[in-house]
Design a binder for these strands. Structure first.
Lengths: 200, 200
DNA sequence: TTATTTTACCTAACAGTGTTAGCAAAATTA
DNA sequence: TAATTTTGCTAACACTGTTAGGTAAAATAA
């Protein structure tokens, strides 16, 4: 009964080739230029075949979004494991977040940059991101060290994530390369400010 | 020669009726559902007439963006004029920024939410926003009061704006109304943290 | 092996999008 | 009144996402 397996394997290959082609197109031309027909041409199949694997175009984007969050999560974990002290962990993770965004602009834009679409994508972002879980422990420790033990760690976390996203998205605009130095300063300023704000 | 004037007036009326119709459609159905044909139908003219007033669809969105920044600017100025102390000025402006975003979600999304398009829209945002100029003076004063006079006001400003945008855009996602309380806390946490970070 | 059914895949279409070429009618000027 | 400019329209082009319906090949059943 190897026939069914071969078919299944082929189907999975086709599915991932769709994602691969879609991703390549997104990187090359931006996610606004992505079209089903271009994907079909790239994988050398007709258009309806794509709809055998994905319900619609949005489902493809959503899958790429998931891939992006997976990459981000591993980067964050790696950053956390690289250091020991609580402060340096937060710092490393913020930096890793920043680096991921700028090293994978296309991913970050698919993950967040689609604006506020009517789809379910956005609602899934908070579920996809393990950023909160990862950074919760360090934040709690920092608060414990600080002078105000009543500080809400979830609130701090939420603020941290929001502000970090703001820094990334604002600095991703324009695209002037000569702002690279400024950007580094902005990030450092933010991190040190945030850490000290929890100790107070 | 009142004929030419009448024509000119009519042309301007048509132009603003296009913008008005476009805006109404954006509010009702979101900016992704905006189409030239819908605008044409709304103003009861044929499609090509629109192209006599705007080069393309993007130009219409850009005009709405400008309107949005104008509204935001006046809100910020009003907030600044309402208070005297430096700290409360910054606080009031941040709050006004926040309120504008959530009271005019459609505007804010047109202004920032289009992701990172290939167009020139984004590059014009920094020029359109007078947020930087308005908040520069209060920031400078705060730094002067603080213990570290070498702090770069422009850097602080940039950070402030970025983080504020991050707070808004993250909290604008999801759209759960029961998060309203949390959102207020997040904003207050951010403002107090930022102000104290400059005094240090 | 033959008949039947299932699977795989494609062509062609529908309804929508931004944009523009070319033409008819109305308004203005000479 | 005749010529000219302005005004606005129809119709088309080249796209977009999505799907209905059909065909030929492959797998299964008789």
């Amino acid at each position: 009964m190897g026939i069914a397996e071969r078919k299944k394997r082929h189907k999975e290959e086709l599915r991932s080739s769709i994602l691969e082609a879609a991703w390549q197109l997104v990187v090359q031309e931006g996610w606004q230029a992505l079209s089903i027909r271009k994907i079909a041409e790239a994988i050398e199949y007709s258009v309806p075949v794509i709809y055998d694997h994905f319900a619609n175009k949005e489902a493809i984007l959503l899958e790429l979004t998931k891939q992006g969050f997976q990459k981000l999560n591993t980067a964050l974990i790696k950053a956390q494991e690289g250091t020991v002290s609580t402060e340096s962990q937060i710092e490393a993770m913020a930096y890793a977040y920043w680096r991921f965004a700028f090293d994978n602009k296309a991913y970050y834009q698919v993950m967040y940059g689609l604006g506020i679409p009517s789809c379910e994508t956005v609602n899934q972002i908070s579920e996809l991101s393990t950023f909160s879980e990862l950074i919760l422990q360090p934040v709690k420790k920092l608060i414990a060290i600080g002078k105000n033990p009543e500080t809400d760690p979830f609130l701090k976390l939420h603020t941290f994530w929001s502000m970090l996203h703001g820094l990334v998205s604002i600095n991703m605009m324009g695209g002037d390369q000569d702002k690279e130095e400024l950007n580094q300063l902005v990030l450092q300023d933010f991190i040190s400010g945030f850490i000290s704000s929890m100790k107070v």
